[in-house]
């Protein structure tokens, strides 16, 4: 059995105090707790400070392109359904440049986890406005305050049929760990959005800000996480500042619904075909 230590990869270079440390730690801890081995796990990351997670986690990793972790992760998950695939990246990566893929990944419902480190800013490129930045947010790219209203990834996911949705906070590693564990164990596409403060560039959405404003849905009486409309309503009412498992539904996945999807993982198929199979296909053309 692999221990937490087995999941430690390259030496992190994140700024001390960066929220991304907790996100990564919770993933590594969750993986070891549910009995995964590093070689049965694939971490596909985008580009950003957050994208470094595939460098710092010991597992099969793929540090890819800005905004493209999701299709690459889906390809890997479909290619070998026996491997636990986690896509990961920042808010810019997932909800800015990659937002098209995000919506389609939600509706495709491939069995995998998507871990977003949302710091409401572009970290790696040194502090520009991100798609989750609040209106009026001041950065070098919006010195007079950003004018666009922020994206609503949670509602977007729910509206497009997400089957597992959770939100965590780097300041609450215990809850985060539980959420990530549940996400890894979910059958289908699981989104975990984590408020992961950028201590260097974002002086608004700080640990203190989140501590003050976040509410945990498990403290609500009778929160029904199987009720999609209620989840949307709750998120709206709390302006997105809720944590915990917000929605979960058991539904057939992409591979379940693709009736002719191969039983044996595609990567394990024997590629040499009997020539009678090929001859039969050739006859179609005559």
């Amino acid at each position: 059995m692999a221990t937490l230590k087995d999941f430690k990869g390259d030496q992190p270079t994140w700024c001390p105090g960066c929220g991304h440390f907790s996100v990564m730690a919770s993933l590594q801890k969750a993986a070891s707790e549910i009995g995964l081995e590093p070689h049965d796990m694939g971490v596909v990351s985008g580009i950003g400070c957050s994208g470094k997670i595939s460098e710092y986690t010991r597992a099969y990793g793929f540090h890819t392109l800005h905004g493209r972790s999701l299709p690459i992760a889906q390809g890997a998950a479909l290619g070998n359904k026996d491997v636990q695939i986690i896509a990961s990246g920042g808010d810019g990566d997932g909800y800015g440049i990659g937002v098209g893929h995000f919506i389609h990944a939600v509706r495709r419902n491939v069995n995998m986890t998507y871990l977003v480190m949302d710091n409401n800013i572009y970290g790696l490129t040194k502090g520009q406005t991100s798609p989750t930045s609040q209106q009026g947010f001041i950065t070098k790219s919006s010195p007079k305050g950003s004018v666009e209203s922020p994206v609503h990834p949670l509602e977007t996911a729910l509206a497009n049929g997400i089957t597992f949705l959770a939100q965590g906070f780097s300041g609450d590693i215990k809850q985060l760990n539980e959420i990530v564990k549940a996400a890894l164990q979910h059958k289908g596409f699981a989104l975990v959005n984590v408020f992961s403060p950028c201590v260097t560039f974002n002086k608004v959405n700080t640990y203190d800000y989140y501590k003050e404003n976040l509410v945990d849905v498990s403290t609500f009486t009778n929160y029904d996480k199987t009720d999609r409309m209620n989840a949307i309503k709750t998120i709206r009412e709390k302006n997105g500042l809720v944590t915990g498992i917000l929605f979960k539904e058991d539904k057939p996945t992409f591979t379940d619904l693709t009736k002719d999807f191969p039983e044996i993982a595609i990567a394990k198929q024997d590629l040499n075909l009997d020539s009678t199979i090929l001859e039969k296909i050739e006859k179609q053309f005559q």
């Binding site: 793929f62 493209r68 690459i72 390809g75 290619g79 070998n80 595609i266």
Partner: peptide, 16 residues
């Protein structure tokens, strides 16, 4: 973009 990147993901997983 998804067309090629999914293929890259599948190739990474060991599929032609």
């Amino acid at each position: 973009i998804a067309g090629i990147t999914m293929a890259i993901g599948a190739a990474y997983s060991g599929v032609r």
